[in-house]
Each structure stands twice: as structure tokens, then as C-alpha cells.
């Protein structure tokens, strides 16, 4: 069933905005509503074309009015985010994530027109620890329940979504657990992290990182909206990069920090407004996380176009990250040494 009226939350950010733009470009969709607390940046607004922007706070019951008066039949909840807006943004972020979702779901429950709900969640709901299996499937639950931050928000959000699904069994609910996004255009904690000239890591740990290209993320969200594919799906690119390997591929310098000094260093980077890592993201840098995407490929019918490595390379090239040591220089040095060695033959 193709949706007639689509409401997208979080349109002032990359995913929500570009998603609204894709729906606006689709002639089958009659009306596209984009909701956020602040208007999207101008270039994003231009891209969104005929999509209408509604400046509303999803924490406010007003959202129910928007949904019922516009006869919204499909809601795409893409505003759950891991990126706090500023140094004090973490409380606001939590409210937006959790209270916002509750309000939105309440509004959806009230409106009989709503037929479909697509939720952008995260693989952070699996947590990250040494006692976890190497690869998570959708039916696994975390060994250590995330106690704070974005991961906890996401666990709570998914709980409310499940509750909504029980109360409105007529609504198709698709929950998408995304791995970390990467790409030349998207701005996340991770893209800022890898762009640092010297990248701090935790000494003695090397996380396995699975990434998803932002274009693939958009395609998955679009597919979930356009088709009826209820269920919970892990979404991530094929393959894995080790954190140290990713830093090398980006041509950055790795700075291992003893785990006792990690809070101090993290605090420094936060106050310098470079990268704002929450404790659960710090844990992610220790252990990493890999999800199984068999269900995505077999049942959801989508295979990511970029592997983790390709997506990361695309990000490195797109951002124009210059390696500290030019690969050409390395290759030249290698040839030079071999030439010298050949003389001693």
C-alpha cells in the first residue's frame, strides 16, 4: 500500500530532511509533512520541494492535531538522535527522544487514519560489553542494559513502540535498528571523531565497527515507508572495520589513552566542542558492535550498496581527509629500500 499522506519527524536533520525530499519527489505520495522544532537549513529546505514544513514540538499535544487534520496515514519517526545540540543539550535530547516519542505515539493511537509507523532506532539497544556474542541478531537482548544516554533512550523508545503495536494491531510497525551512519554528507559524532587530526582511543582495546552509508539508510527508510514490511530489522553494511584500522584508513594518528584517563580526555574534547561522547558511546569504542543483517536481506528485501569499508572510504574521500603520510611517499620509500637491497644481492 503506497502511503497518501506522510509525516516525517526530525526534518531539520540530515536523515529526516532528505527522507522528506525523497517522498516529495515521489508523485504517488499526495502530501508530505515535515515536523521539527527548528526549520531545516536552507539548502535542505530547497531540496524538500513540495514537502510542507510544520514547526511543532513533538513533545507537545499539538502534534495530535496535525496528524488528525492532515489525515496522516503514515508516520516516519526519524528524530530519535544521538547527537546532543550543545553542551547542555543532553537533557533536551533525552526529552525529545523519549517524551517526544510518547507524545507522537499517543497522537498516532488517537488517529484512526494512521496505518503505518516507521521508527528509526539504533543497534545501540544491544549494548556493548565483553560478555556479548560477537554478532547480534534481532532476538537478542543486551547483557548489560544501557544505564544512560542515547542507548537507554533507544531502549525506552522501542519499549513504547512495542506497546503501541499491541494497542493498535491494525498499524504496521517497522522498527529499524541502524548501525552507525557514515557518509560524505552526514554529520554525526562518529564523522566528527574520525575527522580529528589525532584520534583518541582506549588503550588496549580495539572495537569492531560496523557502519552504514547514509544513502543506504535513506533507501531503507524509504523502502520501509513505501512497502508493508512490519517487524524489527537490523540495518548495517556488510563487513567490519577495526577502530584502529579505520583510523589508519582515514590517515589519522591514533592516540591510545589509558582507560583511567578516558573521562578526563573525553571531558576535554567535550568542552573544546570537538566531539561529545556519552559514556555508552565510550563503551562502544571499547568493544564495538556487529549486527546480523540476514533478516534485512531475506525478509525486508534490501542489500546495502556500500559495505562498511566502502562507506568509510567514501566518507574519507568525500570529506577530503588528507592522510598525514602520503601513500605515495610510503610506496616510494618501499621501492627505495628494495632498490638499495637489490644492490647488495
Amino acid at each position: 500500500m503506497t502511503p497518501k499522506v506522510v509525516l516525517v519527524t526530525g526534518v531539520s536533520r540530515f536523515l529526516g530532511g532528505h527522507l522528506a525530499a525523497r517522498f516529495a519527489a515521489n508523485p504517488d505520495v499526495e502530501r508530505v509533512l515535515g515536523v521539527d522544532t527548528e526549520p531545516p537549513p536552507r539548502d535542505l529546505l530547497r531540496r524538500m520541494g513540495r514537502a510542507e514544513f510544520v514547526r511543532a514540538d513533538i513533545r507537545n499535544p499539538l502534534i495530535a492535531k496535525v496528524i488528525s487534520t492532515a489525515n496522516v496515514d503514515t508516520v516516519v519517526h526519524a528524530s530519535v538522535t544521538a547527537n546532543p545540540a550543545g553542551p547542555t543539550g543532553r537533557t533536551v535530547m533525552k526529552e525529545m527522544n523519549v517524551i517526544g516519542t510518547m507524545q507522537l505515539l499517543a497522537a498516532c493511537q488517537k488517529s484512526p487514519k494512521v496505518r503505518k509507523l516507521v521508527v528509526k532506532s539504533t543497534s545501540a539497544v544491544y549494548g556493548s560489553s565483553s560478555r556479548d556474542p560477537a554478532v547480534f541478531t534481532e532476538d537478542m537482548s543486551p547483557k548489560d542494559l544501557p544505564s544512560s544516554g542515547y542507548a537507554k533512550d533507544a531502549v525506552e523508545v522501542e519499549g513504547y513502540v512495542r506497546g503501541f503495536g499491541r494497542r493498535r494491531p491494525d498499524v504496521n510497525v517497522t522498527t529499524l535498528r541502524f548501525t552507525n551512519f557514515i557518509g560524505p554528507r552526514i554529520d554525526t559524532v562518529l564523522t566528527r571523531y574520525f575527522a580529528l587530526p589525532v584520534v583518541p582511543t582506549v588503550l588496549g582495546y580495539d572495537a569492531r565497527v560496523q557502519l552504514l552509508h547514509s544513502e543506504d539508510a535513506l533507501a531503507v527508510l524509504e523502502r520501509a515507508t513505501m512497502h508493508d514490511l512490519p517487524g524489527v530489522y537490523n540495518v548495517g553494511g556488510d563487513g567490519v572495520l577495526l577502530l584502529s584500522q579505520a583510523i589508519r584508513r582515514a590517515g589519522r594518528l591514533n592516540l591510545p589513552v589509558p582507560s583511567s584517563a578516558v573521562p578526563t580526555v573525553g571531558g576535554f574534547f567535550r568542552s573544546a566542542r570537538l566531539v561529545d561522547f556519552s559514556p555508552d558511546q565510550m563503551r562502544f569504542l571499547n568493544w564495538g558492535r556487529v549486527v546480523d543483517t540476514t533478516l534485512l536481506k531475506k525478509e525486508f528485501g534490501f542489500t546495502p550498496r556500500w559495505t562498511t569499508q566502502q562507506a568509510f572510504d567514501d566518507y574519507v574521500n568525500g570529506r577530503g581527509l588528507k592522510p598525514l603520510v602520503d601513500p605515495e611517499t610510503v610506496a616510494a620509500a618501499e621501492r627505495g629500500i628494495l632498490d638499495v637491497a637489490a644492490r647488495f644481492r
Binding site: A134, V135, D206, R208, Q210, G239, V240, L241, L242, S244, Q245, A246, I247, R248, R249, G288, V290, V325, P327, V330, A331, E334, I337, L338, A341, A342, R345
Partner: peptide, 26 residues
């Protein structure tokens, strides 16, 4: 010894550029 040196240098270059594969278990 020269072949070994060649291998060693190639290995060092691969490591420096992060040009190797790691499976999902690491």
C-alpha cells in the same frame, strides 16, 4: 632474505594504510 624483506615491507605498508580484511568476529 630479499624476498623476505619484500614481504615485510609490503606487510608494513598494508598495516600503515589499514588495507586488510577483518571478519565480523575481529
Amino acid at each position: 632474505w630479499e624476498r623476505r624483506l619484500t614481504d615485510l615491507l609490503a606487510f608494513a605498508r598494508r598495516r600503515l594504510a589499514g588495507d586488510y580484511e577483518v571478519d565480523e568476529f575481529g
